[in-house]
Design a protein around this nucleic acid. Structure first.
Ligand SMILES: [Zn+2]
Ligand SMILES: [Zn+2]
Length: 774
DNA sequence: AGCACGCCGACT
DNA sequence: GTCGGCGTGCTC
């Protein structure tokens, strides 16, 4: 038997199946979807069996050396999905396949040192990676001289937690009466017949050698078994009383759960309109029919509270996949799904690949969130994968948001998606939104970043024992370093960006490549001492606020205070326990918005995002303000939001204040049409990077020229231009943007272009649904 | 992507 | 004469 195998190499020249012989021993064992170890040239690689056949056209075929799975890791569906992904996002199939797996099922590569030379015996049978690089050089030299052999090995990352099942075999074997521990265990087993090592280890105070001795004597048998870690062990299912649904909610549930429904729905409802109840009820209905559900949420809203809510509602048959879990825990959750032990999967982007076999509904909550788009290969959008899987399983997709992206809303208007509005809001009207004109504050002589009404509002909340969340729009709160004599700003030596000053460490950092340096004492170009940081960092803002409101207890969340693992949760918990009365930070504070004691939300520079040269800047600002202002005062207490801006009459600010999506949409659509942007056009972003700027430019021009042959009324090629991030990690970057109407030929042309333009040292990447244009 | 093989410049 | 630079080609 022959297996067709995709090897774990991301390169165009090997982006196809390779034939391998299946050894006699595994003839009936190896099936498509299994991970195997295969020899590939001089290497040993992870491979994925995508098909089997009886014969191959080739004469020299190597055998599979190891089968890594007992049951296939990929279902037939997921194998098909990987083809769809590689075709539509123009990535290699290996990349698509690997992206669908939890990290624990990927492998690392190493080399085993084998030597008979006495001089090198201290290396024998050790892995090369355990030695420092200078020793590795010596080893490679010895290998070249034939003194040692390097055998490529692959190592699985999965660490299944195991236990030992101990069974009594023969109690009549004579034991020395002095071997008290052995007798103890035997007598225990005579009573219990079988036990687990983890149980008796402490109870009888045993060591493993005692067990092994008894195993050798034939008294008992030992079997290693996998056990599942359960990070949510303490949570049990509540007795569930169905929520009373509003008419809107009921209508939505009825539409979504109609028999044989396969549509994509847009569930459009403001914060507090009860989208979650619609999700829960729809999932419940699908489970009743014996089908399964995937609920996708942005990583940021995957809070312990949310997890608890789902565990309580659906009990043990829920798997939650999120970044807070360890590698092993993620793998355990994944395995529970694969083994059919769960019916509901809740998770962020990659949970859309959950290996369920009978999906009845897929939900994307907060569908406008940009984290649903993966920015590395495969550059997929979760919405597209969800739609594909729903088509495979003949089931509906639900897209939920208060602020759907224009593409989604437009599709619902055209009838491509079914529109399900939720108009009623629990707790009545949306909280009032006050727009503060910061120009007037400036005229009044207020030069702080905080308007008078905001300061008064915060003081009032502190008096009443309530809390405030202050959102800093990340843009505009970074500090750079400038020389006041020569005007030089300090740049990253590897990238075309300013270095950011970090007050905490008194160091300079590059956010793109990780470069770090000490803050210089003098200007590197003119040696002037008049060099210092400019711009207002979050720490500076905190200091100003503390100065204005001395009684405030401020919890600041930014890169500096949350870099340590778990610090994020810790700060949020402290805020929830009311150990602070102000939570100050960038977008990462969003989780704090749902705390019931928060009655004031302030957005410090709401329009900082408006100035970004990105056609989605208005949309993002609208989303931010609407999402934030819908949330204050979700508990018993009345809420308020204060939006500070220098553009109070801007349509984004005005429509967001009124929570008027419709007007915003109409206005924004006009601008998108005029500007030739999505949803009126599809985009393709081609990024070309090379070590030399002229190389990159020449290649980009060649690519643009080639694509211009396709130009028509429905296809426009822009560029090449310097990328906004013109240099990254010492590579110069050019961009070509192709605007089109969704023609199939575009993808084919780009695929052909990628296949043709494989020059070493010049990198070309394509994103067919770009959201980040850096 | 790696890794080997191979063909030219500057070292012992 | 040899070490090592990276250009080229192959991997079932
Ligand atoms: Zn200077
Ligand atoms: Zn950098």
């Amino acid at each position: 038997m022959i297996a067709e195998v995709i090897v774990d190499v991301a390169a165009a020249t090997v982006d196809r199946p390779f034939d391998y012989e299946v050894p006699e021993l595994w003839q009936n064992l190896v099936v498509p979807g299994m991970r195997v170890e295969v020899p590939f040239g001089p290497r040993a690689l992870l491979g994925i069996v995508v098909a089997t056949k009886e014969e191959s056209d080739l004469t020299r075929i190597k055998p599979i050396v190891r089968v890594l799975d007992e049951v296939p890791t990929y279902t037939e569906e997921l194998l098909e999905l990987s083809s769809y992904l590689s075709e539509t996002t123009l990535c290699y199939q290996a990349t698509a396949l690997l992206a669908m797996l939890p990290a624990a099922l990927k492998v690392s590569y190493d080399k085993l040192i084998l030597t008979e030379t006495a001089r090198f015996s201290h290396w024998n049978r050790k892995k090369i990676s355990q030695f420092p690089s200078e020793v590795q050089q010596e080893i490679l030299l010895a290998a070249r001289q034939g003194e040692v052999e390097l055998q490529p090995v692959i190592k699985e990352k999965k660490t299944t937690k195991t236990d030992k099942r101990i069974r009594l075999l023969d109690p009549s074997v004579p034991l020395s009466s002095q071997a008290t521990k052995q007798v103890l265990l035997r007598d225990y087993l005579i009573e219990q017949k079988e036990t687990m090592w983890s149980q008796v280890m402490h109870e009888l105070d045993l060591t493993l050698s005692i067990v092994h001795t008894l195993e050798r004597k034939g008294v008992l048998s030992v079997e290693t078994v996998d056990i599942n870690r359960n990070p949510y062990e303490h949570l049990t299912q509540d007795i569930f009383t169905p929520a009373r649904l509003t008419d809107d909610q009921q209508a939505a549930v009825d539409a979504i759960t109609a028999p044989d429904e396969t549509a994509t729905f847009l569930l459009h409802g403001v914060t507090g309109s009860g989208k979650t109840e619609v999700y829960l009820e729809s999932i419940h209905a699908m489970l009743e029919r014996g089908r399964q559900a995937i609920l996708l949420v942005p990583e940021i809203s995957l809070t312990p509270m949310m997890v608890k809510r789902f565990k309580r509602r659906f009990g043990e048959r829920v798997a939650v996949l999120h970044s807070g879990l360890s590698l092993g825990e993620k793998y355990d959750e994944w395995r529970k799904i694969a083994q059919g032990e769960v019916d509901v999967v809740v998770g962020a982007r990659s949970a859309v690949f959950a290996p369920l076999t009978n999906v009845g509904i897929i939900i994307l909550d907060e569908e406008h969130e940009t984290t649903y788009k993966q920015e590395e290969n495969p550059k997929y959008h979760t919405r597209d994968v969800a739609t594909w899987r729903a088509a495979f399983h003949h089931c509906p997709v639900v897209l939920g948001s208060a602020t759907p992206i224009l593409e989604t809303y437009a599709r619902s208007q055209k009838g491509v998606y079914q529109y399900l509005p939720l108009k009623e809001r629990f707790g009545g009207e949306l909280p009032p939104v006050d727009i503060i004109d910061m120009r007037k504050e400036l005229e009044r002589g207020n030069r702080t970043p905080f308007s008078l009404p905001l300061i008064e509002g915060i003081k009032q909340r502190i008096e009443r024992g309530e809390q405030t969340v202050l959102l800093l729009n990340r843009r505009g709160y970074t500090t750079f370093v400038l020389c006041r004599d020569c005007g030089e700003t300090l740049q990253c030596p590897h990238c075309a960006v300013n270095l950011t000053y970090h007050q905490q460490a008194d160091r300079l950092k590059c956010h793109y490549c990780g470069f770090e340096a000490a803050m210089p004492k003098e200007c590197p170009s003119c040696s002037s001492k008049k060099i210092r940081q400019f711009g207002t960092g979050t720490q500076k803002i905190e200091e100003e606020l503390a100065h204005l409101i001395p009684e405030a207890k401020i919890i600041r969340m930014d890169q500096d205070t949350t870099s340590r693992k778990g610090a994020h949760e810790k700060l949020l918990n402290a805020f929830e326990r009311r150990e602070g009365n102000i939570l100050l930070g960038t977008q990462m504070i969003a989780k704090g918005l749902d705390f019931p004691n928060v009655t004031l939300v302030g957005v410090i520079a709401a329009d900082a995002t408006l100035g970004i040269p990105d056609f989605r800047a208005s949309e993002r600002t609208f989303q931010l303000i609407t999402q934030v202002s819908g949330r204050a005062g979700r508990g018993e207490l009345a809420g308020q939001s204060i939006i500070q801006t220098y553009n109070p009459e801007h349509y984004v600010i005005q429509t967001a204040k009124q929570h008027d999506y419709e007007t915003f949409y109409n206005r924004e659509m006009q601008l998108r049409k005029l500007g030739g942007h999505p949803p009126f056009w599809f985009l393709g972003l081609i990024t070309i990077s090379a070590a030399h700027p002229l190389e990159a430019q020449a290649e980009a021009e060649a690519i643009a020229a080639q694509l211009r042959h396709l130009e028509s009324d429905d296809l426009v090629v822009n560029g090449p231009l310097d990328a906004p991030l013109a240099r990254l990690k010492n590579m110069y970057r050019q961009q070509v943007i192709i605007k089109h109407k969704g023609q199939e030929e575009v993808r084919e042309a780009l695929r052909a272009m990628l296949a043709l333009r494989i020059k070493q040292k010049i990198q070309v990447t394509v994103d067919l649904n770009p959201f980040v244009f850096m």
